[in-house]
Design a protein around this nucleic acid. Structure first.
Lengths: 178, 178
DNA sequence: TAGAACATGTAACGGGTTACATGATTTG
DNA sequence: CAAATCATGTAACCCGTTACATGTTCTA
């Protein structure tokens, strides 16, 4: 029965997507990547593993196998309950792991030219991502049915990237004061 | 010889700290927490595990055991080389995992009052963290020997927190357009 | 002298990543 | 008919977290 092992965030994401209709593992991978990839990554190994576990736990059920072994899953009542409980809980603290800041923290031990190179590359990456987010926002706003939740998460990305880019702008001045 | 298994970021952090002089596992835990905790967390289990592994790999060496079984480690030549190589590499992409954004992404399935509650709590947390960072920056600037690298990482935190707080300010308007 | 802080570690688990393995269907 | 894409999954590893286990030294 219910007491099922606490849902982890990755399964919860999958369960949440399945609330919109049956999907196969493959669909879940691509949908999750498109919708949440910017702030929650997952791999197909995880997806198939969690689907198997949730199926065992009675949170989802597989429907009839279609062409190419497509196996659509749908949420059960127990799954709906588990998801509702997960969604209403206090969200975990974000786990922060920023490899670039480690490099910066040890900047004094790094050749300055190499450091500049690394920073330029990272900066370009963030610029590109900001552009992507802005373009996505434009597209979203222009579309018929704007999904406010998607707009909200996109907006997070935009503000974050802008902040990071501002930081890059001041970084050399901070690291190498006159 | 060298070909030693690629250094992971957590060992690299420890190695980097050991470049400033011998430290015990205990010292490393507290120093790493103080210096990098804002963007790279680690636990003592990891520290003792990585110290053992690096010692096996010849990257560090234990000195004489002191009182309370204090066991100071120091970096070897091989360790210096491994760290230098690690530091000059292209930093990994940041792994992003923001549980709050999952909650926001599924906001439409969540009771609005509960959502507001969750957002308020998270927002307060970010406000507190920003205050901490600002205070730390003041202290750092006032100190005799300002460490530019520490200032740079702190500055990242400050800009990030400000951006997040701005986002919170607009969030309800985005999620619940008039 | 009791409790806090110091100090070391192990064991077990959870979950993210990568590599491996296989085959079906579509499309050019 | 070849190549790309679709589609499923397993195995092994790495590493972060939590709980467990033990003992020492300082300090109030």
């Amino acid at each position: 029965m219910a007491g099922a092992a606490r849902l982890n965030a990755t399964s919860a994401v999958l369960l949440g997507l399945l609330h919109e209709g049956p999907l196969t593992g493959w669909d879940l991978v691509s949908t999750a990547h498109a919708r949440f990839g910017d702030f929650w990554s997952l791999t197909k190994s995880q997806v198939y593993r969690e689907l198997a576990a949730m199926s065992d736990g009675g949170l989802i059920e597989a429907g009839d196998t279609g062409p190419r072994d497509r196996k659509p899953y749908r949420v059960t009542r127990a799954g709906e309950a588990a998801f509702a409980e997960w969604l209403a809980r206090e969200p975990e603290a974000e786990s922060i792991r920023l490899p670039l800041l480690l490099t910066v923290a040890f900047a004094s031990r790094l050749d300055r030219a190499r450091l500049t190179e690394i920073l330029a590359a990272k900066r370009a990456g963030h610029t590109g991502r900001l552009d992507d987010y802005l373009a996505a926002r434009d597209r979203l706003r222009a579309s018929a049915d704007v999904d406010p939740a998607r707009l909200a998460t996109l907006e997070y990305g935009i503000r974050h990237e802008r902040a990071v880019l501002e930081w890059f702008g001041d970084l050399e001045a901070i690291l190498f004061p006159a």
